[in-house]
Design a protein around this nucleic acid. Structure first.
Lengths: 223, 223
DNA sequence: CGTATTGTTGGAACAAAGTTCCAGCCAGTT
DNA sequence: AACTGGCTGGAACTTTGTTCCAACAATACG
């Protein structure tokens, strides 16, 4: 019984899943998604691959744990008693900001299904939909719509971050894309041609929220 | 000038980006995303990596080309003159079915931004929104919502396909997930607990369309 | 008090993947 | 007939995730 406690204190610099996950997050945040390799991890933790694999199943497991670590904070950060519709907006923005700060979270959410993190999303949003009085039959569909929309944006943001790369100018990159779009045949691509102008100035965060509001407006028509 | 035509006929089995892309799609469809390696490609095309790299920038380029190849058919398959709202639903379902048939397309769309395929999506959907009389300022947001929602679903479907793997039983897999969800604390996860029952029987395609309708309903409130 | 056992570590080694390099081939030109 | 340049295919390099194993620490046991 008493062995438990001592085991965790075997060494001051003892390795643990917690410590490994934190190191991984640091690498992911500061050097980007592609910089997280087991080599980099072993170097930062001053150990070998074997030690890490003792605590972690594989790289997927590690990324899942890191993602949960970030998401957990987001969903619980909305004050109790908030009006449901506003709570959903708050959670959505929290999620967006988290992904903005940790783009790799977006890639992970968008690419790996049925993780614990997504369960948390479903519960956070679905719970408010219930409180909002959405008919039972439509709750699943509505929650799915909101979550999948968020996942779509998450994936795009992660991909953008990967593309623009650390240090590069985001506006310059968007201008480049807009230029390409403008050069398309206006007869064949009238819509793209038109929004190309809005592309550079537009705010991803605002647009994300506008999408959430659009879906919520649709949910409102169900009542 | 005359060399053009002859160059393409240099050999009966001449390599070309077209042929490489088709071989890649065959591998992706029959053996799954992970089976597409340059080794597998060289074997199927009876050549070496160098030959492939002469026609293709890298693996990303190859996947992008394969994705465009699939998406192009989807977006142009809706008959002209269709009522805009219905056209959007048709395109969305076409996209869903395409991703259902080629899950790797979902992964590609969800994970790589600003590709030609996505431009086609934007144009197809955005064009109909214009025809629908959506106010100009909201067109971009609405199109973005629909596209990102579709991308979210695409990513999840791709991930599911990767997880369930070829040959395995999808229902059994979903039951497993549902079981896990049911075992959660109902007090902490009331919503997830409730929809777990619906999880096994639910139809992804129907739910996807329900989400599209939800967003379209929201768009309808803008008028 | 030593010895066995269990949990944990770190480094060497492996396999698979994307990619590069290069020597050669083949159709067309001079 | 020699030459040129687009095109080919195989060998080889690099990087990654992962496995294996010999050694170490700390506790449990005799």
């Amino acid at each position: 019984m008493a062995t438990r406690k001592q085991r965790t204190e075997r060494r001051a610099d003892a390795l643990s899943k917690e410590r490994i996950v934190e190191a991984a997050i640091e690498i992911l945040d500061t050097e980007g998604e592609r910089a997280l390799t087991f080599r980099a991890l072993t170097q930062r933790l001053a150990t070998g691959p074997g030690a890490i694999y003792w605590h972690v199943e594989n790289k997927g497991d590690l990324l899942a744990a890191a993602t949960s670590h970030v998401i957990a904070h987001v969903m619980t950060d909305v004050p109790a008693g908030t009006e449901p519709r506003e709570a959903i907006r708050t959670m959505a923005l929290g999620l967006f900001d988290a992904i903005d700060a940790h783009p790799w979270v977006g890639a992970q959410l968008a690419g790996e299904p049925w993780q614990f993190a997504m369960l948390q999303l479903f519960e956070g949003i679905g719970g408010r939909l219930m409180a909002l009085g959405v008919p039972g039959s439509a709750q699943f569909d509505a929650a799915s719509a909101l979550v999948n929309y968020a996942l779509g944006v998450a994936g795009q943001n992660a991909a953008n971050a990967r593309l623009v790369a650390p240090g590069r100018d985001r506006t310059a990159f968007l201008s480049g894309v807009a230029d390409q779009w403008v050069q398309l045949d206006p007869a064949e691509y009238p819509f793209v041609h038109q929004i190309a102008k809005q592309l550079v100035g537009h705010d991803d965060r605002d647009q994300f929220l506008a999408g959430v509001d659009l879906i919520l407006a649709g949910v409102g028509t169900l009542g």
